[in-house]
Nucleic acid binder design. Structure first.
Lengths: 344, 344
DNA sequence: TTGTATGCGTTATCAT
DNA sequence: ATGATAACGCATACAA
């Protein structure tokens, strides 16, 4: 077992534990001689500082936590990768946690992080499934604990927390404009759960884009899913049975798109001929599909970087102006894919 | 800021901090009266125990770390999900780290975990790129520190660490048998980097399967990639230019398959007609491809569970019999996909 | 520059 | 069952 402490190192080096500490943390002044001896002893004994004790004393952990809502969604694993790289550059470790689209699991992770005194938290917040109006109790406690916190991708508007999110207005306007130009009139929307701010934003941007393009906003053409594949499959059936016979569909995330495309394939619907499809999130599966699916995609790398930067601001200042941190990113529409073709 | 300690709780409850501790950790015997008072006070003050201090004293963290080699590879994020769920059931938190297929980044994470005194480590080990024979120095230190350690997916044979891995022999035998029955003679293999044990295992199982099926083991039909998409693209070009004109290709992981399929699509090669393709790892992109790609897929859920179970054994016993923990899983071949058709 | 002594928040020991 | 106190490993104020 590893029981080698700074005392052992000090003893082996023939100095006091204070001097050993000074050498090993490298802050204060130390003589070249003791530096040499201590470093040799530490290496020799295989000394690994106990981060628990260190941060108990210094109240700094150089660690942030990132909570995403679904590890298995490539959208979020890309985001995780971006955050991690940026944090690494800033000398901080990242703990990645997975809420699994479940607010209970989110709270468990948040509690663990809070009790481990991470320096900051970057969170894709889960709304409460039953009640989207109020954040969970644990989330409230995080906030009132004063732990630096930043939301990314999704947000909880009630909480006034710095948020890195995206505005789909432009991209959806472009998409709908393109579809209209191709003759599509009845465009369906397979949306996400109302407790996710991104789902709400995409839905209202969809409605606004219809209106801006002079198309009727038909409430019945909106399907409420939950961002997971199974609900996309349900949505696909719903589209096929819909009395307005939509000729184009926009899908709010990649897992739902995968579920839907699988259903349509099995039903013999030819995407790009019988039905035009545009999906959020440019993941491999969308590009591998035949034909490739037109996408509205976010610059996850930049969003991840921005989240870390915003968190660093919060960690530095004590009272930041929240308004400064509501960053809006603009996703990019790639519509020149064969999944978008003239409609009836 | 959150500065409420167990002393504050004790004071508010009118008991000693020792009693408060006993109530809050729930181990020793306490009177109903003090239990009530302490719990009320704790809730009232919003007390969050400091895990640093707790585990400094108790040398237990109820936390394990999982190091995967690429967060963005769905294969590994599925594995991460499985490990996390199983650990949660056992009352342990999981820190997920990403080596990004880089042994330096692996070592950074391992150092951080070691210094945080996690109770155990589940690792998909990176070999050293230059020298696949020796584990990294940090890995050696982990081992000699006595921290409970289990390898999953990949292993480092030199280290004699309990390992959860897979044997592709059966699946590849089946795959090659099918290809031969369909008339394929020249079958190429796009493999992974030699420093990954899975790459070596898949390669030698491929050779063995050729031999078992009475096909010549043609060294020149093996392409050495690195498990990433770009090398799959290189491999795709290599296949097209190869003088033996292979009619079937087996690809060692999903990212490489995606890279290769993209190249072939752009080159106008019709997979399933001009070329038969079988890929390891059944990820969404393989199923979305037209035609769907035949796959050899692992039961990641079981492998993840097994890894946690094995780790628990190591944490319980002090000197386990390593042989007991070399679990072999057998991937399943799904060959009835249209990417596999008769060959020249 | 170095050593001594103290404290971080919690649990364990030893009395009572 | 409870309280006083030491101890976990480290960093730092203060003294030398």
């Amino acid at each position: 077992m590893n029981a080698v402490t700074i005392k052992d190192v000090a003893q082996a080096a023939g100095v006091s534990s204070a001097t050993a500490s000074r050498v090993l943390s490298g802050h204060s002044a130390t003589s070249a001689e003791s530096r040499e001896k201590v470093e040799a002893a530490a290496k020799n004994l295989g000394f690994v500082p106990n981060a628990q004790a260190r941060s108990l004393r210094s109240t700094k952990t150089d660690t942030i936590a990132l909570l995403i809502s679904d590890v298995r969604n490539p959208y979020f694993s890309d985001l995780a990768h971006a955050v991690e790289q940026q944090a690494l550059e800033a000398g901080m470790m990242t703990f990645i946690g997975n809420a699994n689209e479940d607010s209970e699991q989110q709270d468990k992770f948040l509690a663990a992080m809070l009790s481990r005194r991470v320096d900051g938290l970057i969170v894709v917040p889960q709304g409460l499934d039953e009640d989207s109006e109020h954040p969970s109790e644990m989330m409230q406690r995080i906030v009132s604990s004063g732990t630096p916190l930043v939301f990314v991708d999704r947000t909880l508007p009630q909480l006034n927390i710095p948020s890195i999110s995206a505005s789909s207005a432009t991209a959806l306007n472009e998409a709908i404009g393109e579809l209209k130009a191709l003759g599509h009139q009845n465009i369906a929307f397979l949306g996400g759960p109302a407790h996710a701010s991104t789902a709400r934003e995409r839905h209202s941007a969809f409605d606004a884009a219809l209106e801006a393009n002079g198309l009727t906003t038909e409430k019945s053409l909106h399907f409420a899913g939950d961002f997971r594949a199974a609900s996309g499959a349900d949505g696909a059936h719903w589209v096929l049975r819909h009395q307005l016979e939509p000729t184009a569909v926009i899908i709010a995330d990649a897992p739902m798109a995968i579920g839907a495309l699988t259903v349509w394939r099995e039903a013999g619907i030819r995407v790009g001929a019988d039905l035009s499809v545009i999906a959020f999130d440019e993941v491999d599966a969308m590009l591998m599909h035949h034909p490739p699916i037109a996408t509205i995609s976010h610059d996850l790398h930049s969003m991840g970087r921005a989240a870390v930067t915003a968190l660093q601001s919060v960690m530095a200042d004590k009272e930041p102006e929240p308004q400064e941190f509501i960053s809006q990113f603009t996703p990019r529409a790639s519509l020149a894919q064969a999944s978008v073709t003239p409609g009836a």
